[in-house]
Design a protein around this nucleic acid. Structure first.
Lengths: 130, 130
DNA sequence: GTTAAAAATAATAACTATTATTGATTTGAG
DNA sequence: CTCAAATCAATAATAGTTATTATTTTTAAC
């Protein structure tokens, strides 16, 4: 039984990503795992996150304040980004945008493969602080 | 009549952005305008684009291949991004995602202000080339 | 368990898009 | 024209990310 693409750090990185709903940055994950793996390198986090993306075990939410945000939840859902604190929240309510794949494909004569819906605004925590 | 925030270069940058549907990068705009304004600086393009965004006369489509893409069309519409060539295409078909503002607001106890819908796939040109 | 090839990593350097700085130029009302 | 405010060019600086390379870890056959 050949277990390719395995290392304890890679496994820990993926588990840390799947175990949070904060949609973290590479740097945040690096700092989180640094205590458990004192010799962890930031480059390793970046490299593994990139690999998770191409493998499909992680997705990118987008870039918030100059930093890419990752999501280990690959089930289809949308996101809300707080323009004040940068928090990224999940929205699991279906939005019918995916239902437009075929129509968009026809309109553009293109092959539509995915759809991201991003809401922006002020989150509840930031509203309270005002 | 006070004409604040005016300069021939700023006007040219905005007109160039509004006169294309390619959703260009700052660098693309710089190269486009360089022939007309030989002493134009890339920093000036970046600074004006940032100002257009805060003023609301331009919006950001997102970051494609590491570069921010801008749109001078501020009417609500969606976008398709080709994952092969990086082209950004407009989609004017309404997608009913905006209709979910109030529901999302309730679900998150947040103040939703905008919504971006991004489709990804392979554009017609790239499909032909395969 | 050993061992050798393959894969992954740490540390570091390099890259690149973007932003900040600063001194010079342009703008427009008086 | 004059002057203060706005804008700009040129340059340096910043910061997120990627590439490099020597070292370490993992793997699977022995």
């Amino acid at each position: 039984m050949k277990r390719q693409n395995y290392s304890r750090k890679r496994e820990a990185i993926l588990q840390a990503l799947q175990g949070t709903n904060t949609h973290p940055t590479a740097e945040w994950m690096y700092l989180q795992l640094k205590s458990q793996f004192p010799d962890l390198s930031l480059g390793t986090v970046y490299r593994n996150l990139a690999q998770f993306k191409t493998e499909g075990s992680a997705v990118s939410v987008g870039i918030v304040n100059g930093q890419e945000r990752f999501d280990g939840n690959t089930s289809p859902h949308s996101h809300f980004i707080c323009t004040q604190c940068g928090a990224v929240l999940d929205i699991f309510k279906p939005l019918y945008a995916e239902a437009s794949f075929s129509e968009i494909s026809q309109e553009l004569c293109a092959q539509v493969e995915s759809c991201d819906v991003l809401f922006r605004g002020v989150c509840s925590d930031c509203l309270k602080k005002q």
